[in-house]
Deep mutational scan, measured.
Amino acid sequence: MTYKLISNGKTLKGETTTEAVDAATAEKVFKQYANDNGVDGEWTYDDATKTFTVTE
């Protein structure tokens, strides 16, 4: 399945996607992506749209 990340960081804003077997796997990928880009904030997940959002 395709999962989307919306980043509302102070230094990184935008969207990216990943293919993953489940939401937990996608979350690990996205949290590593955010960490690699210096984004640390509040996370939410919408199962209906398969979208994670991180806001700093």
Rank of each mutant, 00 (worst) to 15 (best):
T11D: 09
V21T: 12
V39C: 08
A34T: 06
T16D: 03
G41T: 02
L5S: 01
K50N: 07
D46V: 04
L12C: 12
G14Y: 14
N8H: 12
L12G: 10
V39D: 02
D36Y: 07
K31C: 05
A26K: 00
D46P: 00
I6L: 08
T49C: 04
T44A: 10
T25G: 08
T25Y: 06
A24T: 09
Q32N: 08
Y45K: 01
G41S: 02
S7L: 15
A48M: 10
A48L: 13
K31Y: 06
T55G: 05
T49Q: 05
G38H: 08
F30L: 05
E42T: 13
T2N: 06
M1T: 15
D36M: 10
A48G: 07
V54C: 05
E27Y: 15
K31V: 05
W43Y: 02
V29H: 12
K13D: 07
M1D: 14
D36W: 07
E56L: 10
N37V: 09
N8L: 13
T11L: 11
N37C: 11
D46F: 03
D47P: 14
Q32K: 14
Y45N: 00
T49W: 03
Y33N: 03
T25R: 06
K13S: 11
T18D: 01
N8S: 10
E19Y: 15
K50A: 05
D46C: 09
T51A: 04
L5I: 03
T11Y: 14
M1W: 14
G14W: 15
T18W: 06
E56W: 11
E56C: 07
G9V: 13
K31A: 04
K28W: 08
K10Y: 10
A20I: 02
D36G: 05
V54W: 03
L5K: 01
K31S: 03
F30S: 00
A48P: 06
D47E: 14
L12R: 04
D46I: 04
T16V: 14
T11K: 10
T16H: 14
T51Q: 04
D22M: 02
S7M: 15
T25C: 07
N37I: 11
K50F: 09
N37M: 14
A26R: 00
A34S: 04
F30G: 02
A34N: 02
A26M: 02
T16N: 05
A24D: 10
D47L: 05
K50D: 01
K13H: 11
K4P: 03
G9S: 12
Q32A: 12
K4F: 13
E56P: 09
D46H: 05
N35V: 13
N35C: 15
T44L: 08
T44M: 08
S7T: 15
I6V: 13
G38P: 01
K31Q: 08
T16W: 15
V29Q: 07
T53C: 09
T44F: 10
A34C: 14
K10M: 12
K28N: 07
A20T: 05
E15C: 15
V29D: 04
A24H: 09
K31L: 07
E15M: 12
F52L: 00
K13P: 12
Y45F: 06
A20S: 05
E15H: 09
Y3H: 03
T44I: 08
T53P: 01
G9P: 05
A26Y: 00
V39M: 12
Y33F: 13
D40Q: 14
D47N: 07
G41E: 02
G41M: 03
